[in-house]
Design a protein around this nucleic acid. Structure first.
Length: 230
DNA sequence: AATAGGAGCAACCGCCATTCA
DNA sequence: GTGAATGGCGGTTGCTCCTAT
């Protein structure tokens, strides 16, 4: 929405409201609403999203407030054009993680998952297609038996691992570990990737996966990215 | 100049995991 | 142990702007 004036109150119609409450405003945020929200969060801090609109005197649902803050009002959010190196990183990470936007965003400073998702859908998803590659799983659009496809398979399997969860979610670390475990299982099919894992993992594998935290996952991801798998 | 179609992106929805009473 | 509330995620929608015809 580029024109804030085209809110629901002025005719914009989105799908059925997430909250059925009458009097909840929907559609684009106005500068006044932004200011109210930003000031309130600066004063009271993040969280308690459901009750925030009432306390801040905003006619919005909590989800809408949270989204607005997370994606646009947070001071740490960088707006503007995606740099070529960021684009490259997004491509690599998507190659490894699939549509796990929060995971990808977590590794690109000051970018939000919504922004990265939009950028992928509008710009980057077309690149693999032009190269004859399926952007959803980075497999060739016309698959042929080829050892390198095993690498693609593991990427697809990661993206299929509970795609609704990321590192910032309450259950993030265990799910990271699950994705990691799945990833590793598939990696075993590829000598090259096994070598990658050997560099990261040492000792008992089960213990490693069980105790996988954000740092180790991060290291693991770094090794895959740096290995230029895509 | 008018208009149709595509691109870009903000905002919403439904779902799921976690937390808490 | 259970159910409601909450937070967070990915997918999708639809409005506005831009460009080609």
């Amino acid at each position: 929405m580029r024109n804030p004036s085209s809110s629901s109150s002025s005719g914009t119609t989105y799908k059925t409201p997430c909250c059925s409450k009458v009097g909840i405003k929907r559609g684009p945020w106005t500068p006044e609403e932004d200011e109210i929200l930003a000031n309130y969060i600066k004063r009271e801090g993040e969280g308690r999203w459901r009750t925030l609109p009432k306390h801040a005197c905003l006619l919005r649902c909590g989800k809408s407030c949270r989204l607005r803050w997370m994606n646009y009002l947070r001071p740490s959010v960088k707006r503007g054009r995606i740099a070529p190196d960021e684009e490259d990183l997004i491509l690599r990470l998507h190659c490894l993680l699939g549509n796990r936007w929060s995971l990808i965003a977590g590794r690109i400073p000051e970018r939000t998952n919504n922004e990265i998702k939009n950028y992928w859908n509008t710009h980057l998803s077309k690149k693999p297609i032009s190269q004859g590659i399926d952007p959803r799983n980075h497999k060739p659009l016309n698959p042929s038996p080829n050892p390198t496809e095993i690498v693609h398979d593991h990427r697809a399997s990661i993206s299929n691992q509970n795609p609704n969860r990321g590192p910032n979610s309450p259950g993030g670390s265990s799910l990271q570990a699950n994705a990691f475990q799945s990833d590793h299982t598939n990696l075993e099919q590829c000598d090259h990737n096994l070598a990658v894992n050997d560099g990261v993992m040492a000792g008992n594998e089960e213990d490693y996966i069980e105790n996988c935290n954000e740092d180790t996952f991060s290291s693991f991801l770094d090794s895959l990215i740096n290995d230029n798998m895509c």
